[in-house]
Write a protein that binds this DNA or RNA. Structure first.
Length: 984
RNA sequence: GCGGCUGUGGCGAAAUUGGCAUACGCGGUGGGCUUAAAAUCCACUGGGGUUUUCCCCGUUGUCGGUUCGAGUCCGACCAGCCGCACCA
């Protein structure tokens, strides 16, 4: 008898796996892809990856072929050689190497590893890679602190994470490892950047941007969280700065990014889809131009302002309508899109309410304001007020709850629909960055406008009524309300409340009587026809600002020449490598700017003196396409071979934290679409399925360095072993839920594995004692190693376990089975059925483990030997237990498999086949309900008919007692489930 | 305000389709083994009972509905968590 020694076992099997290259995806498949490189990729979509369950229930390669041979890949049928197995790409988000492996990582990778291992056992060619998101600020900050190079810190952390992953036995194909800070990788960032530059997707402009004073760099919109804080420093308010920087035109893909979310429903969590929809923020409406009432001199000034702020400096593609320039942040927007000179452009989704507009309201930062205010009666007072509003708007944290504020400019505009003269106001609630930075205020039909109108005494004319209301009756009620409300001095009425829904237009000239939807359509068309408006869709999404004034990132590959202007670095000169000895201070301009050797270059065009761009790229660029690189990680000619990507993509299952629901997942979706439009790939979305696992908490809070509540994964592995750790994280909570760390619970997992180990250990000892009594089969075998049953010939990587277990229409043991043995085998196959379903169609690892625990309890209960289950039979059951545990506790499973007498590694064995025959119950106990309450139980033969069961029920004493003197009204019988008698 | 999610024992949680609620684990109590402890194995662990291999009652955040039957479906609410937020 031996003890379970996880440290020794885990070391032993990790070595074996490595020697046998168990986790490498099949080379022959890639060769096939190689050979078909020139062929079109069109048939790819037929690959068996479009499925329902998280693991793809329809993907079982055994399901459609009685021989057990995996389904052929339809794409490969057209050519030779034929990939033997269908592909499966499972991926966990690559980590930022900031320290050692923690529980959050470990949980993420354990889930992915279970999936990868299950899929391998199910006969798939599995791609399961890992890499390092190794550019980024923490490395640079650590380098400044320790006076070293960021690479030192980064590589130390990578080495530690790598060791940690090895320690847990995660089944990665390490041939494909990537590290984004290596020139072999980031040169392709630069290459993609040049492609985008050619197409006008990358452009540069000066704009007001988000600046984090702690990061000392610019942030993208997506990196500003909680209404104005840095995503990395959640206590640090983001400042506004005017900086010239590079953008990627994510807005050119707004519509697609939104529409394609529909293709992800079912595969992606509803929550993530909703968050992205929300972020992209589509509004369909119309722009309308309001003429400004003539005031001497104003018009020409406005016109000249227009000219000044047209095209941004290098936006070559910006002339294209689809790629139209979208100003990014507060103060500069609007300048290029305030419409025709002398007019104010507003955006509205409710053009049908335009007859109810009682003012135009501009954002305090609207570029037309200076012209508008000049020459007005109280210009000085207005400008003072404006300055004050601009001041406060920068610092406002809780914009949504701030009180409405504003003032009248002294100017008027003309409503193009009815010629009415309405005042132009400034309001603090109007945002320059959304729509056109100006709105028409329709107080009767908009909450905010109403609040504003009430505060400043603007009229509140009603122009929409609830459908079905007669005009007359509502007028009466409004008049009553009028008398009660002293503020309602002017024009028509004060509505009883703000009515923001659709209804029927009233008081709207020729449009009165139209339903809101019809009115919107007709009025927008009319505005367009009459030249004072345009149907328009606006998005909340902004272009992605990628310039960072830091060292540890990808250099942006452009050169500035006094003569030729901005010149892209020629492709042949890539990569632009980071200087090796940077001066890192964390302050001021980009560290690259301080290195003359880096900065001063010859112009690629004229050969004259020129300067390099000194900003680096946002590190989210690195992670936007890394999963494509895994398909062809060592390619030095291209980012990847399109044929290989065509074979593996889309990712069948992507797994990561919800924190990336917007940032990474939006950027990488964008990148995929750009790559598709460059003709490099065929897929429009990177991942068919996304799984967001819950966080690991301690004391109710997410583990973090700053809170000091991190539990190191390696410590846990040292104490209990990797398998116990893996089992614990899978068992303690369903994978999508947050998991509260508990030392007591991990003891439970440890106890269970010990229980299993002792069982197998004892069984191999006992079976050697027992072998003569069972059947002649094992005679002459070594006592410690019973012969594996029915291993027909050597079949490496083939269905060994499945072959022996699959044909078990009856048990393999030749002698007749006792009732107890039948019972145990039945329980085993019932467990197998449920565990298989838990792995395949839903990710209920916790209940799968619970099932296996029950089975193990049943084996214990089937003791003692003398009156029941013989070692031969028990061995068969233990083999099933071992195979079911294999994806979750792979090291222990290998060891148990060997202890059970198998010399071939468990990695060569397929998932066991379930036997309906063995799982079938002979007898079932069904509850008998009287009027829905359980009043008794009956043991009946499985599949018994209603009549039989009813007769038995009526014969049963206790049940008959409840039936006595009552009339049987109805009988509901669900076969093998329940009998319900309705009596009265 | 908008969108999404979650509410089940002392705790983590189960419950494929509407069909015996609380499986499995933790914790707790009692017992076997042991000089003792640890480990381990067994039993009990919603409430109640003078029929204890038996019986009764209650119960899945709240209120209502559909149904022979609801943790599950429908409607309204309450509480908590997450994301976005004066988005025109």
């Amino acid at each position: 008898m031996a003890d379970y020694n996880p440290q020794a076992i885990e070391k032993k099997w990790q070595k074996r796996w490595e020697e046998n290259r168990v986790f490498e995806s099949e080379a022959e498949v890639e060769e096939a892809a190689e050979k078909s490189k020139s062929a079109p990729l069109a048939s790819k979509g037929a690959a068996p990856s479009q499925t329902q369950g998280p693991l793809g229930e329809t993907q079982d390669p055994h399901a459609k072929s009685a021989s057990g041979a995996p389904l052929e890949n339809p794409r490969a049928q057209a050519r030779v050689p034929v990939p033997r197995k269908p592909k499966y790409y499972v991926l966990e988000m690559l980590p930022y190497p900031s320290g050692t492996l923690h529980m959050g990582h470990m949980r993420n990778y354990t889930i992915g590893d279970v999936v990868a291992r299950v899929k391998r056992m199910r006969g798939f060619n599995v791609l399961h890679p890992m890499g390092w998101d190794s550019f980024g600020l923490p490395a640079e900050n650590a380098a400044i602190k320790n006076h070293t190079h960021p690479r030192v810190w980064t590589n130390k952390n990578i080495a530690e994470l790598f060791q940690g992953m090895k320690r847990f036995g995660f089944s990665y194909d390490w041939r494909r490892e990537i590290s984004t800070c290596e020139p072999e990788y980031y040169r392709w960032n630069q290459w993609f950047f040049l492609k985008m530059l050619e197409r006008g997707i990358a452009y540069k402009k000066k704009s007001r941007v988000n600046w984090c004073p702690k990061c000392c760099t610019v942030l993208a919109n997506e990196q500003v969280v909680n209404g104005g804080y840095c995503w990395r420093h959640e206590d640090t308010l983001v400042e506004a700065r005017d900086i010239e920087q590079w953008f990627l035109k994510t807005t050119a893909y707004s519509e697609q990014l939104l529409d394609d979310l529909k293709t992800l429903t079912g595969g992606w969590p509803e929550r993530v889809i909703a968050m992205q929809e929300n972020w992209i923020g589509k509004s369909v409406g119309a722009k309308v131009w309001f003429e400004i009432e003539e005031v001497e001199g104003a018009k020409s000034k406005v016109e000249s302002e227009e000219k000044k702020t047209q095209d941004p400096p290098f936006a070559e593609g910006a002339k294209d309508g689809a790629l139209e320039e979208k100003p990014k942040s507060r103060q500069d927007a609007g300048a290029t899109r305030n419409g025709t000179p002398g007019k104010i452009e507003i955006f509205t989704t409710r053009i049908d309410t335009i007859y109810g507009a009682s003012a135009l309201i501009l954002a305090p930062t609207h570029p037309l304001l200076e012209q508008l205010l000049s020459g007005t009666a109280n210009q000085a007072a207005s400008e003072a007020k404006l300055a004050q509003m601009r001041q406060t708007s920068v610092k406002t944290e809780d914009v949504a709850t701030a009180e409405k504020d504003g003032f009248f400019t002294g100017r008027y505009a003309v409503n193009p629909f009815n010629g009415e003269k309405i005042p132009i106001w400034v309001g603090n609630f109007v945002l320059l960055e959304y729509g056109t930075g100006a709105i028409m205020a329709v107080p009767a039909h908009d909450e905010r406008d109403y609040e504003f109108a009430v505060k400043f005494g603007l009229p509140i004319p009603v122009v929409v009524e609830k459908a079905g209301h007669s005009f007359q009756s509502t007028v009466d009620s409004k008049e009553k309300k009028n008398q009660e409300n002293p503020r309602a001095q002017s024009r028509v009425t004060v509505p009883p409340e703000v009515y923001t829904e659709y209804g029927v237009s009233v008081n709207s000239g020729v449009y009165s009587g139209l339903k809101s939807a019809d009115a919107i359509e007709k009025m927008a068309s009319d505005a367009e026809a009459r030249g004072f408006g345009k149907k328009e869709t606006v998005f909340r999404l902004r272009d992605w600002g990628i310039s960072r004034q830091r060292y540890w990132g990808t250099p942006i590959p452009v050169i500035y020449c006094a003569k030729d202007g901005m010149v892209p670095v020629p492709e042949k000169d890539l990569p632009v490598v980071l200087p090796t000895n940077p001066k890192l201070t964390g302050e001021g301009e980009s560290p690259l700017a301080t290195d003359p050797e880096f900065v001063n270059v010859k112009c690629p065009k004229c050969g004259g003196p020129a300067r390099r761009e000194t900003d680096t790229m946002d590190t989210f660029v690195d992670s936007s396409w890394y999963f494509y690189r895994y398909c062809d990680a060592k390619n030095s000619e291209a980012p990847f071979d399109s044929a290989k990507v065509g074979y593996w993509f889309p990712i069948d299952q992507y797994i990561g934290g919800i924190t990336h629901a917007i940032l990474h997942l939006l950027y990488s979706r964008f990148w995929t679409k750009v790559m598709r439009d460059l003709g490099l790939i065929e897929n429009s979305e990177p991942a068919a399925r996304l799984f967001t696992q819950g966080m690991v908490l301690k004391g109710g809070a997410a583990m973090s360095k700053s809170k000091g509540n991190i539990v190191g994964a390696i410590d846990m592995a040292e104490k209990y072993g990797a398998d116990t750790g893996r089992l614990y994280t899978l068992f303690a909570a369903p994978p999508e839920k947050d998991l509260e760390w508990s030392e007591e619970s991990i003891e439970g997992a440890w106890r269970f594995l010990n229980r299993v180990f002792r069982l197998v250990d004892r069984n191999s000892v006992e079976s050697s004692k027992f072998k003569v009594e069972s059947n002649g089969k094992n005679q002459g075998q070594e006592a410690s190693k019973p012969a594996p049953l029915e291993t027909k010939g050597a079949a490496p990587r083939e269905n060994l376990g499945a072959q022996s277990l699959q044909n078990s229409g009856q048990a393999r043991v030749a002698v007749p089975l006792t009732e107890k043995e039948k019972g145990l085998l039945r329980k085993a196959h019932q467990t197998l059925r449920r565990v298989t379903a838990d792995f395949e169609t839903r990710w209920h690892f916790n209940s799968a483990i619970a099932q296996i625990m029950e089975l193990v309890n049943a084996i214990y209960a089937a003791e003692p030997l003398e009156n029941g289950v013989r070692p031969e039979v028990r061995k068969e059951v233990l083999e099933l237990v071992t195979l079911m545990l294999a994806p979750m506790t792979p090291h222990l499973a290998e060891e148990l498999w060997e202890m059970l007498g198998h010399s071939e590694g468990l990695w060569t064995v397929s998932w066991p086949a379930f036997s309906e025959e063995l799982a079938k119950e002979d007898e079932v106990e069904i509850p008998v309900q009287i009027n829905g309450k359980v009043r008794g139980r009956l043991k009946v033969a499985a599949g018994a008919s209603q009549d039989e069961v009813l007769k038995l029920a009526q014969a049963d004493g206790a049940i008959a007692g409840h039936l006595a003197g009552k009339k049987l009204i109805k009988v509901i019988y669900v076969r093998d489930k329940l009998l319900n008698l309705v009596v009265g």
